[in-house]
Design a binder for these strands. Structure first.
Lengths: 118, 118
DNA sequence: ACTTTATATACGTTGACAGGAATATTCCTT
DNA sequence: AAGGAATATTCCTGTCAACGTATATAAAGT
């Protein structure tokens, strides 16, 4: 199924503390220690959540000496955007009207073609 | 926190079978029985998932005689879209360049103002 | 080499939740 | 009113994953 990737992202972001990490990393890359400190986690908890985020490719690591610097990756957010985009007709009324409009144009087209073929 | 609503949506959609229901309902409103049949669920399972979706306001019900017709609601998808939109600078490179451009314009502005004030 | 600092991993416990089976509720039909 | 259809609810069980604590690993500083 087409949406499995986004599903994984959903699942990983559904955990409140992980979403906090993501929100924090939006401001820029951070080390494990900084993340733990700023969110009031103990270090292992931060590491574990970051591992999950990393496995889901939501985050990537750069090792600098002792430290691991984590930062957000673009891809999962693009995919999430694509997914929600595929639901646009449901939540965007303007899009609805546009679609109706195109639909109407199509009907006229068909009619013209029919007339032509007679 | 601003993102709590989307978090609930994440959590509810993270369940594979619930996401299946949502994908199915994208085609249009359906009764519990139809949903259960088309997805191979037993009826109680369908009802329970629909209750969760309903509590999260992802779905709304219309009672018609014996049946309950479920359909998607727009709001959670709009909110999801807003949320992902707030991450646009991370995943949209064009947006990045645009932001840089605006940033540069601002700097020039400041310089002009400084010159002016001398 | 030894100690400290930063991070990861392992283990045990606990709580949440999805699934199945049985039952309750509600409305329709006759 | 009785039976049947559609849906909701309840109870039970098993699984998974988040947390805390303790420990392992790895690099840096002295």
């Amino acid at each position: 199924m087409r949406f499995i990737k986004s599903m994984k992202t959903f699942h990983v972001l559904a955990e409140p503390n992980r979403l906090l990490i993501v929100e924090l990393l939006r401001e820029g890359p951070l080390s494990v220690g900084e993340i733990a400190e700023r969110l009031g986690f103990n270090q292992p908890q931060a590491s574990k959540h970051l591992k999950v985020l990393s496995d889901a490719a939501i985050v990537e690591v750069e090792a600098i000496a002792n430290r691991r610097i984590y930062k957000l990756r673009a891809e999962p957010f693009q995919e999430l955007n694509n997914w929600i985009e595929s639901y646009r007709s449901i939540w965007d009324e303007r899009y609805d009207r546009l679609e109706n409009h195109l639909q109407n144009l199509k009907k006229k087209d068909v009619k013209l073609n029919n007339d032509e073929s007679k």
